[in-house]
Design a protein around this nucleic acid. Structure first.
Lengths: 124, 124
DNA sequence: CCGAATCCTTTAAGATACTG
DNA sequence: CAGTATCTTAAAGGATTCGG
């Protein structure tokens, strides 16, 4: 069935993806992994503000979704590397467009917020 | 300063946008509003699963960010219409790419999940 | 019809400490 | 280095009720 899903229907499988991906940390991790393999603690440092717990959870979900590949290298203190899968890379490009939109339009949004707050919300 | 922001830095303004937009409901609302003005309760029905409270909050934030315009029409039972602003429409197009990615790749993700679960996680 | 206010439950985040 | 386990605290979300 090549019927397009109704994204607005609660039982739509696409919602599953959207639910999972509408996540600040997942997006940031995907973006960080673009074009580079990164170790766990490096990721932890680079993506400022993630706790190791949340990062761990995020990576596990991304791995489960087939977006990120986890490689254990049996060095003395063990090394674990994370990289995008082809599927993940594909998504990361989309995410990147999103991130760059935010970057380009932050000024406009900040201005809108100031205007909104200035007049006390929607007219209070 | 046209210096590109570091999206990974915690104090980066782009993170503000990302934090706010990495939201299931905001994304769904934006998508629903593409090309059409919609009333509150219509929106509530169409975006299955939103509570009225959450929808209300979401719309208020989107309005504050200058992405959605709210119009009150003084009919007998008052009518309130929501529409995308030019800025919001611009974003909605980006969001749409995101949603369509999910739609196109849901099969692959579901398969990856099944494989992952089948072998008991990352090798447990 | 639109939405604010309240309450109350559930989920998730943060900090900390400990293991392979 | 790379995680898991636990505990505490904060917040998101859902249901319900009432007012413009």
């Amino acid at each position: 069935m090549a019927m397009p899903y109704d994204v607005f229907a609660a039982n739509c499988p696409t919602r599953l993806v959207l639910d999972r991906l509408a996540d600040k940390w997942a997006l940031l991790v995907l973006e960080r992994l673009r074009g580079e393999t990164v170790r766990f603690n490096r990721l932890r440092r680079d993506v400022e503000g993630v706790s190791q717990k949340v990062l761990s959870q995020t990576l596990k979900r991304l791995e489960r979704d087939g977006l990120v590949a986890r490689t254990v290298i049996p060095t003395v203190p063990v090394t674990v590397e994370y990289a995008l899968t082809p599927l993940g890379l594909n998504l990361a490009d989309t995410v990147s467009a999103f991130a760059h939109w935010a970057e380009r339009n932050i000024e406009a949004i900040l201005a809108a917020q100031a205007a909104y707050d200035g007049r006390g919300g929607a007219g209070a």
